[in-house]
Computed example of a mutant assay.
Amino acid sequence: MTTALDPQTAKRLAFLRLVYEQGVQQSRLPAPLNATALLFLHDAVELFLVLAGDHLRVQLDRKTSFLDYWDRLKKAPNGVHLSGVAGMRRLNDHRNGLKHAGNMPSPDVLDQVKADVSSFFDDNVPRVFQGLAFDAIDMAEVIPQGPVRRLVREAGERERDGSRSLAMVILNRAFYTLFDGRGVRGFGSTLRKDPWLANNLRSALAQPNDRMRGDKVARQIEDLHKATVDMQEVVRILTLGLDIHEYRRFERLIREFWSHKEERDVEVAQRAEGSGHVPTQEELGFCRQFIVQAAISVFETAEHRKLPSWYAEEFRDF
Rank of each mutant, 00 (worst) to 15 (best):
Q130G: 02
S189H: 11
I237W: 03
E313A: 15
S189I: 15
A227W: 01
Q281T: 15
M139S: 10
T280I: 11
P77Q: 06
V45Y: 03
A206H: 06
H225S: 14
N209G: 09
H42I: 02
R271L: 14
A35I: 05
F40A: 11
H81T: 15
L82R: 06
V113H: 00
G181M: 09
K226I: 15
K11W: 09
A136E: 13
V80H: 00
R202N: 09
L240S: 07
R202L: 15
I291A: 01
T301F: 08
Y247L: 13
F315K: 07
F299A: 14
F121A: 07
L166S: 03
R164H: 11
V58G: 02
Q281A: 15
L33S: 09
Y69Q: 06
F134P: 05
K226M: 14
E21N: 08
K193E: 13
V292T: 06
Q281W: 10
T36V: 13
R95H: 11
V234Y: 00
S83D: 08
R57F: 06
M88I: 10
T228C: 10
L67S: 07
A155Y: 04
N199Y: 08
A167R: 09
F250Y: 14
A35D: 04
S203H: 10
W310H: 12
D71G: 08
V298M: 09
R255P: 00
R28Q: 12
E233N: 11
K114W: 01
P7K: 02
N78Y: 06
S165K: 02
F175Y: 03
Q112N: 07
P30K: 05
P144Q: 08
L73A: 12
N103E: 10
F134D: 01
S83R: 14
V45C: 06
L240Q: 04
V169S: 03
